[in-house]
């Protein structure tokens, strides 16, 4: 028996919004420690890794490890039927071929349930090595989304250059060149507005804008985003999900031809 309950459907809606542009379907691996999802996008350029800890749920029970392959388009249709403040419960029997998603209004006067067929997905699981990153940047998630959106107008690629002075995002194309520099913030009143750079050595990497823009669909989940970079390895873009877990996106760099 698997059962996981969250106080607000809005969190699940935001999580789905953060992955459904990259993935058509994905396997949710459930165990007593929580729910994990790892999947590459169709073109195998990026990888999404979602962790939801069992202690972040209002109720969590998972008697046996369970892998639930879900069509994310179908899940989006179901979640559209929930009000943001509804409780949401996911339930499945062991070895089931369906999952039940139930919404309850705060006053318990409306209860709806949706049974969704599960899929057998033959997904490769990749081992992600521990990396000592050269640069780790923490910045407001909205600012990162704005920069990715703005620079995508100028080029398919963005160059991220991080030094101890700050982080520079550049794009160059037919129109010309765009550069956006962010300095590390001195003192800020609000932690969520800070730009913090931890640098071991400077790094310059090139990434495809369309993937960065897809990652920023996670912006409603978190006030801050963390970018971890190291020469010649994938960028890690991480959004914390308060009290529940995190979503990490790995993006393979572009290299000189």
């Amino acid at each position: 028996m698997f059962e996981a309950r969250l106080g607000q459907a809005t969190i699940l809606k935001k999580i789905l919004d953060a992955i459904k542009d990259l993935l058509n379907e994905a396997t949710f691996d459930c165990s007593d420690s929580g729910i994990q999802l790892q999947a590459m996008d169709n073109s195998h350029v990026s990888l999404v890794s979602l962790t939801l800890r069992s202690d972040g749920f209002d109720k969590f029970r998972c008697d046996r490890n369970l892998s639930m392959g879900m069509n994310l388009g179908s899940m989006a249709k179901i979640l559209k039927c929930a009000n943001n403040e509804d409780n949401v419960t996911m339930k499945a029997q062991d070895n089931a071929d369906t999952v039940t998603i139930m919404f309850e209004s705060a006053n318990q006067e409306k209860v709806s349930d949706y049974e969704m067929k599960l899929m057998n997905l033959d997904q490769e699981h990749l081992g992600i090595p521990e990396t000592d990153f050269s640069c780790v940047v923490r910045m407001p998630a909205m600012e990162f989304a704005r920069i990715c959106r703005d620079l995508a107008q100028f080029s398919e690629s963005v160059v991220i250059c991080c030094t101890k002075e700050g982080v520079k995002f550049s794009a160059s194309g037919d129109v010309g060149t765009a550069n956006i520099k962010l300095a590390q913030t001195g003192s800020v009143d609000k932690e969520e507005e800070a730009v913090i750079i931890e640098m071991q050595e400077p790094v310059t990497l090139t990434f495809a804008c369309r993937y960065l823009n897809a990652f920023t669909k996670a912006t409603p989940l978190s006030t801050q985003v963390q970018l971890s970079m190291c020469a010649d390895v994938p960028l890690v873009v991480e959004y914390a999900i308060k009290d529940l877990g995190h979503i990490r996106y790995y993006l393979a760099p572009k290299i000189e031809d």
Partner: peptide, 14 residues
């Protein structure tokens, strides 16, 4: 010009 690498070339299959 730059070439897009694949994520699976960095991470090993488990």
């Amino acid at each position: 010009s730059s070439k897009q690498t694949s994520i699976s070339s960095f991470f090993k299959k488990e």
